[in-house]
Every structure is written in C-alpha cells, then in structure tokens.
Design a binder for these strands. Structure first.
Length: 907
RNA sequence: GGGAUUUUAGCUCAGUUGGCUAGAGCGCAGCAUUCACAUUGCUGAGGUCACAGGUUCGAGACCUGUAAAUCCCACCA
C-alpha cells in the first residue's frame, strides 16, 4: 500500500512538478499557421483558434520574491489553464519576468549606496550592465516559486521584458508612432521626484492629505495692493502674473495693471482667468507656470513666460543671491521671514490639502518643467473606446468596462520618458551639429547601444532616457505570443487577461490601446480582474503593519494545493477581500480527505484483485497520455477524438450508486458553468461539497457494504480530474499512486457524464432522509450512546426492508426488524414511513418535551403554507408547480402532525 | 467635486434571470474512538439579509431614498 494515513504534500510536490516539466505537457501542442497559405483556409484558422487557449502571466519582478497577490494570480490563471488543458485545448500559459524599471532601480541604487558609490560615477551603459548582472543573480528565485505554486507554464517560452525581441517590437512600434506623428517632444510640467531624479506618469503619483498653511501675501501697486493666497511662498520668484476671476467685482479695476513682485524688482501683470476661484482664499492667485500644473495651463492660455526657480535636485535657482541654493523648505522659511520683515505677510491659515508624493519613497513630488517624449493618446484612446463599446472585450467584473471607458475619455497625453538607466533606451538621437540646419533636430535610430551616431555626415547624440515600463509592458500579449504581421497566430488575441484591478489603467488600458495600434485587434477577449488580498481583518497588508502573509510560508506549511484552494475561497472578481490561514487549513483538510478516499478505494480494489495490484511509483510515469482510465473506457487516443463507446465499464446496482452518479453529473455541470463565468470560489465550493459531503459521507459509507469496484474507480477518477485544476499536486500524486491509472492526470480526459437510473437515484434521497431522522432522534433522546441501544422497527416498508444493512451501517442501530405485533416505542417524525425506534416507555416519556417542540415547529411551517394558499392571488398567479408543491407540503405536514400528536397522546 | 463598490451567522464570504424553510468554511456546544481519514464522524445552537419606503401573488435579490465603510479619478492657489 503506497498510501500513508495522511497526505504530506512536502514529500511529493517538487518531484511531481519536475516530472510534469520534464514531460513537456505544459507546452502547447498546436503551432501557429501561415496567414496566406492556400492550404489553410479561414475555417481551419477558426478551428485552430477554437482549440487554442492562451494566457500570458503578468510578469512578476525578476528581482523579487512572489507576494500573496502573485499567489492569487497563479491560482486563478493556472486553474483556468489546467481546466482548459483537461478539456482538450492546446493550452499555452506563457510565463514572464519583469525588469520592473523603477522598482529594481530603487533597489539597485540602494545597493550602490551601500557600496559607497552613486549612479553619477557611471554612464548609462555601465549602469545598465551592472543592474543586468544584479538581476540575473536573483532571477531564479521567482521562477522556483512559480513552480512551487504549480504554475503549469511553458518555461521554454519565458519572456523577460528586456529580451531582444521585446525591445525590437517596442522600437518598431515607437518608429511607427513617430512616423505617424503620435510621438512628440514637449516641454511640460512632469511629476518629478527630487530623490529619485526621475519623472513619473500621473498614475504613478500618490495623493495624500497633508496639513499645511495658506499664506496671504500682499503684492503692491501704485495706490494699493492685492492680497494673494498661496501654500508655496517659495515659488514666488517664479511668478509671472496674478490671476483673478473675470467675474470677481472686487478686482475688476485692477485687471491689466501691474503689481510689484515682493522681494524682487519685477513687475507682473494682473490677468483675468477662470482658474481663480472667488470663493477660495482672497480670490487672487499667483501664477507660477513652471511649478504648478494649473498655473502651467493658465500660462499657456495667456502666453506667459515660464521661470524655473527649483532645480532637479530640489534647490533654488534663478533667484536673488541670498536664496540661491537653498532647499525649497529652507527657502520657504526665509521668504516668509523676509516678507514679514517687509510687512507684506498678511496672514496664515492652517489647512489640510492634498499633496502628491513619490509612491516609492514618499518624497513630495515637484512639478518640474522638462523636455520629455510624449505619446499623443487621443486617437489611441478613441479607437480603444470604440472597440470596447462594441463589446469586443468581456470584463469580470462587468462594471470595470465602464470605469475604463470613463478613464480613456479623460486620458491626458502620456509621458514616456524616465530618467532611469535600467530600462529600454529611447531610440531617439539629437542633432549636435548646429551647422546642419536642414536636418531635423531629432532622428529615430535603433542603435541605442551607441552614445553617438553619424547619419548623412551629421552627428547625433542619444537621448539618455529610458521608456516608462508601461510603454513596453503594453506590448505584452503581442510579444509573448510572438505575434507577427505575416503569420496567423491562433493564440492571439489571448482568451483572457487576468491581472490585478489596481493596474486596470496603468496596464490593461495601455495593452488595449497598443494591441489595437499594432495588430488592429484587441489583445484579449476577456479581462478578469482580481482585487487585493487583505489580511484576516480586511486590512491592507503592509510591512509597516506587520501583517504581510508570505505565500511560500503557507505552501511549505500546508502544501501548494491547500494554498490555492484557500486563496480562491470566498473570492470574487474585482473585490478586495480578506484572507486568513483558516481557509488554507480547510484546503489542506480537503486534500487529506481526498487522499484518504483514494486510500480507501485502493484498499477495496486491492482486495478485489486479491493482491494482484502493483503500486506504481513516479519512476514509471510515461509521458504519453495513453491507456489512461480503463473505467471511463477507451481513452487511448492521444488526439482525444471521441472514440469512447457508449457502454460504460461500470454498472450501477443500487440506489446509492445511481445517486452518486447523478450528483457527480450535477457537479460536472456546475463546475463548467462556474468556470465559464469565472466564479472560481463557487467551483471549489461545489467540489468540496461533492467530494466530502456526498461522495465520502454517503456514497463511500454505502460502499462499505456494496463494493462496486469499477464504479469506485470511475467516480474517483472523475472527481480527481475535476479537482485537478484547483489542486494539481494532490490529484496528480494520487493518480500516480493508484494501481490502475496511467499517464499524467494533468493531461487526462475530462470525465463524461455518468449513466444512472434517475428513479433509483431519487429513492436514495428517501434513505438519506430516514437515516438523518434516525440520527437526529437518537441524538435528541435522553442519555448517551443511544445508537447502540435501540433497534429500528418497520412495517410494510420495502425501502427499509431492502436496505436493512445499509441503514444499520449508516446509523449504527444494532438491528432492524419487522414489527412483531402492535406498534411500540418511538415513532419517527417521517410522513411517508412507519418506523419505530424500540425505546422503552420511560425514555419516550422523557422525550415528551422534544416531541411537543417538534409539533410546534411543524405547525408553524404548516401555517405559513396555509397562509400562502389562502391568498387567491398566489393560487392564480404563481406558477402551477409551485402551487402544487405547496399543496403537497400541506398534506405532508398535516399527516406528520397528526402522527406526532398520536404519539404524544400515547405518552 | 465625479465615479465605482460594499453592508447577509461570532469571523470570512456564497446566494446566477425575484420562488417558498437564506447557505458554506472557520469558530462555538454536545455526542462518538478497534471503521480510509481526529487534518475524522454524527448532531446542534447561531441570521428582522444596514435602515426606510415602493413594485410584486411573492424581495436578501428589482426601484427610490437614508446611513455607514472601502476604493479610484480629478481638484484644492
């Protein structure tokens, strides 16, 4: 016997994964086909697409460890992949690794600092090479963890975001965009982190409420003054105007005048602009186009100068000497002091306002005037919206589609320049030859390994910046599936894009825009977004709170399957949901239950074959999917054509057997339906209940008497296969341990529905009702160990008569006999069966209260039913079958009550 | 300010187009131990489905409003 008394995942998981990986079953079986080959018509291509199922993994950081969110990602994606593989599709799960530009750079820069160096000691190429080595050293970790989670991906196809083909594709797109006029270089305000010395996209910036002050400062003019309100007095040196609202009566007369800019010798105009809110502060606002997003726009409207007074390192420039070189904070202090001295500071009000921070280091983001590359997103967004509105992508949860369209409608141009060495170099070169006046200032060239190039006798120098990672990530479905213009690719568009709801805008939106731009097609047919995994109290996990759960710890402790089952439990699309170890424990318990179910069945099989069985170990595993599953018949054809004969190799010989066949069929249907709708938790729940509550607690218990070996084999196989997508390791381990199965369960054939006698199956429900009533009654009777004391008696009841052994086994009553003479003992509260427990008068009397209670309960139920029937509208308008059910219910309850009352009277 | 989501048992969550007695896991209480499994089995307690109206023969579900919570976007000189 190969089965130990409990399932120990740690003993099997890594061997099982290694065997899978070595066998090559995770590679897709269907190749791509040429687009214009005469031999492959449209129909063939459609057929190929139908049989292909593809998911690309959102690439985890190559440099890091997997966190709980990755755990959820893999559980979701791998379940889908394994399910479709078992359903006979050519499933392609494409793994990836992310260079994670900024994230990794931050880690590496810290490393450099530790070694006593700074980035400024090296040039871009040197830094790139250094980080490359740093990442290469770390990279294996993450991939091992993916294997530990059971991700059944095609490792040969792993894509790293800095792979040559990725860079090549990104350059091709960039060149096309450049030629199409989608790319422009603009001096705009960007979100700049002075600590990291790089710009960020709007979505990478975090806004937080902060306490601050609103200062009133007097700007004087001949014959008066105007008070402006500001939270940033230090930017005063960059002021180029004061704006008031054109409708604001207070300031009507000053519009067009000039005022004196304090602490300087400059005069600036007062202008009228809607931006000034008469309700806020004094209604007059200073305009600093180089350091404020709103002011920048005001500046554009009024054609104002932009004066940069804060440099990239966060110190003051272009200011009077005594302020030069101060940090913004120091400068603010000094400005306030000097204003006060000059008598121009007119008030300070404490306020709470929203300030932008670097999402990584928390430094206040400085709006900074910079020349950067931008993508004009107008057409890209419009096209995406058009396809979304046509319904070409189905979203889970549905509402995210609306949210996404709303976002795209308001999308601003996309800043794709980053001042970080670790990333894909922007393939643009600036002319340094001033004499070549006819040549363009910037040219596109792919030779980014060079700092300087020469073209047509003119010298150009490379832009030092790299792409925003999302620019390259937006190509992910295209590069991972090796999409090309020339070939038809049945794996593109992807069947589903599964990722976190938090990157709907950053990533999903951009993949859609880029997919459409590059391929003309949406990159995926469906989107499933998962929410955040919160801690057990529903709080966000964070290092500072110390409530971070490491998925690998749980895998080690309870097994990979337990983790997967646990994290899927109670989870639905798009929701941030709590997660606790308890759900993993529940998963572990299911694995152990399944293990013991298998152990039990293998025991019966061994008995039946009188010791002929030879347990087969992993060493004997073959890579072919041949000869699997004799019980579900004829599964020897690896091409999976339907050669299965209609006559199964099992027969059902009693009610319990028909019943379990019916229940498994229901389970199969429900699992299909749940997965189709991406309701993973529901699919798991159904399996849990079918395996545990139905298969083990009723069917296997009944099989302790009947022992139908062929049926035990077929049903066990079916349940193992259906659970496999969610719990791949334990199902495969069992499959390898069972004496009669072959090949890998990972590529077994999805079970066909079972044949059974429906009337017989339904009769078993009566047995279950009788057994439950006996158990309940025995528990409720005074005293302990009742099940051993009282025999069951029946009269004229063939159901009980024919199933004496079964009922005895399920209830542990010592005997079942026909009534010998007049009824005696306690009559069970069953309407359609005349059954008595042979309980002495004295005990029955003690049971009187329970009996009275029961009559009351049933009475209340009866009243409710009667009330319903008294309503003429119900009888008239409700569906017929419901009315009939109600009527039947009334009859049954009335009968039951009268019997219970008889019993009570006897006492 | 705009938008989205959530509110069901002690906890975490299901509950698909309205259908009758609202489910699960964990937790809790009682009983069981030569049985494949104590990572077990059996039994049980526990819910005015946030609140108020409405539609309907019938509402946890649909509509209107209220309250509380979470998140996203924009903005706050």
């Amino acid at each position: 016997m190969k089965f130990s008394s409990s399932y120990e995942p740690g003993e099997y998981e890594s061997d099982i994964y290694a065997a899978w990986e070595a066998s090559g079953i995770f590679n897709p079986s269907l190749p791509t086909v040429p687009k214009d080959d005469d031999g492959n018509g449209t129909d063939d291509r459609e057929a190929a697409s139908q049989n292909c199922y593809s998911i690309v993994m959102p690439p985890p950081n190559a440099n890091g460890n997997l966190h709980i969110g990755h755990g959820l990602t893999i559980a979701l994606e791998d379940s889908l992949i394994r399910y479709h593989r078992l359903k006979g599709n050519s499933a392609w799960y494409i793994p990836g690794a992310d260079h994670a530009g900024f994230e990794t750079w931050v880690v590496y820069e810290r490393e450099l600092e530790k070694q006593g160096h700074t980035r400024f000691e090296y040039d871009r190429n040197e830094l790139y090479a250094k980080v490359w080595d740093f990442v290469a050293m770390q990279r294996g970790n993450m991939e091992l963890q993916l294997r530990a989670l059971g991700a059944s991906c095609a490792w040969d196809d792993l894509t790293f975001t800095l792979d040559e083909n990725v860079i090549d594709r990104v350059y091709t797109t960039f060149e096309k965009m450049w030629n199409d006029g989608y790319i422009y270089r603009g001096e705009k305000l960007v979100n700049f982190c002075p600590k990291h010395q790089t710009a960020f996209a709007d979505i990478e910036v975090e806004h937080e409420d902060e306490k601050g002050s609103l200062w009133d400062i007097a700007y004087t003019y001949d014959g008066g003054e105007i008070i402006v309100s500001t939270t940033r007095p230090e930017t005063l040196f960059g002021d180029v105007a004061v704006a008031v609202n054109p409708e604001d009566a207070r300031y009507k007369d000053i519009i067009g005048k000039t005022v004196h800019l304090p602490l300087t010798d400059r005069e600036i105009p007062v202008i009228a602009d809607e931006h000034a809110d008469p309700e806020y502060g004094t209604g007059a606002v200073k305009i600093t186009p180089a350091h404020d997003f709103d002011d920048f726009e005001v500046g554009e409207r009024h054609n104002l100068e932009r004066i940069q007074v804060i440099s990239e390192d966060g110190t003051m420039v272009n200011v009077p000497e005594e302020y030069y070189g101060l940090t913004t904070a120091e400068c603010r202090k000094k400005v306030l002091k000097d204003l006060e001295k000059a008598g121009l500071l007119r008030g300070e009000k404490k306020i709470v306002h929203n300030v932008a921070h670097c999402y990584k280091c928390g430094t206040t983001i400085e709006p900074m005037l910079k020349e950067q590359w931008f993508v004009d997103v107008e057409k890209l967004a419009a096209t995406a919206i058009e396809h979304l509105e046509k319904g070409e992508i189905k979203f889970h949860p549905e509402n995210k589609k609306k949210v996404l369209i709303n976002y795209l409608k308001n999308l601003k141009d996309w800043n794709i320049s980053r001042q970080i060495p670790w990333g894909i170099a922007i393939p643009m070169f600036r002319k340094i030859d001033a004499s070549a006046t006819d040549e363009p200032d910037w040219i596109f060239d792919r030779r980014t390994n060079l700092k300087e190039i020469e073209k047509g006798g003119v010298k150009y120098v490379r832009d030092e910046d790299t792409f925003d990672t999302w620019f390259s990530s937006s190509h992910w479905p295209i590069v991972c599936t090796n999409w090309t213009k020339e070939n038809f690719n049945p794996y593109y568009p992807l069947n589903v894009m599964e990722t976190g709801a938090d990157i709907l805008f950053a990533w999903v939106a951009r993949m859609i825009m880029m997919g459409l731009y590059v391929t003309g097609e949406v990159p995926f047919k469906e989107v499933y977004l998962h929410g955040l995994v919160l801690d057990e109290h529903g709080k966000k996990m964070s290092k500072s709170k110390g409530n971070v759960i490491n998925p690998m710890d749980l895998v080690t402790k309870y097994g990979s399957d337990a983790f997967r089952l646990g994290i899927l439990r109670g989870r639905s699309a798009g929701m941030n949901q709590a997660f606790s170890e308890n759900s993993v424990i529940a998963g572990r318990n299911l694995c152990n239950k399944l293990w013991n179910i298998s152990r039990f069945i293998q025991g019966i099989v061994d008995e039946g074959e009188s010791g002929n069985s030879v347990a087969r170990g992993l060493s004997e595993v073959t890579t072919e999917n041949e000869g699997a599953n004799p019980a579900t018949a004829g599964v020897s054809d690896p091409s999976r054509e339907n050669t299965i004969s209609d006559s199964p190799l099992y027969s059902t010989d009693n009610m319990g057997e028909d019943w379990i066949c019916r229940e498994i069929n229901t389970c199969l249907e429900q699992v299909d339906a749940s997965i189709k709708d991406y309701r993973f938790a529901e699919a798991c729940e159904i399996l849990y209940q079918t395996i545990w509550d139905k298969y083990a607690d009723w069917f296997l218990e009944s099989q302790k008497i009947y022992k139908n070996v062929p049926l035990l084999k077929s049903t066990l196989e079916a349940l193992l296969i259906v659970l496999h997508p969610f719990a791949p390791f334990v199902t495969e381990t069992i499959w390898q341990n069972l004496s009669w199965t072959n090949g890998f369960i990972a590529v077994a054939e999805w079970p066909k529905s079972f044949k059974f006698d429906p009337i017989s199956a339904e009769e078993f429900e009566n047995i279950r009702t009788i057994v439950s009533e006996i158990r309940t009654t025995l528990q409720a009777l005074p005293g302990t160990n009742n099940s051993k004391k009282y025999q069951l008696m029946y009269d004229n009841d063939s159901l009980v008569g024919d199933n004496e052994q079964l009922i005895m086994s399920l209830t542990r009553v010592p005997a079942i006999n026909r009534l010998d003479g007049a009824p005696r003992g306690l009559r069970l509260a069953l309407a359609n069966h005349e059954l008595y427990l042979d309980v002495p008068e004295k005990v029955v009397t003690e049971y009187k209260d329970s009996l009275t209670e029961k009559i009351l309960v049933v009475g209340r139920e009866l009243d409710a039913l009667n009330a319903r029937m008294m309503n003429p509208n119900y009888v008239e308008k409700a569906p017929e079958h419901l009315v009939k059910e109600t009527q039947d219910g009334i009859k049954e309850k009335e009968a039951l009550i009268s019997r219970l009352k008889q019993q009570l009277e006897l006492i």
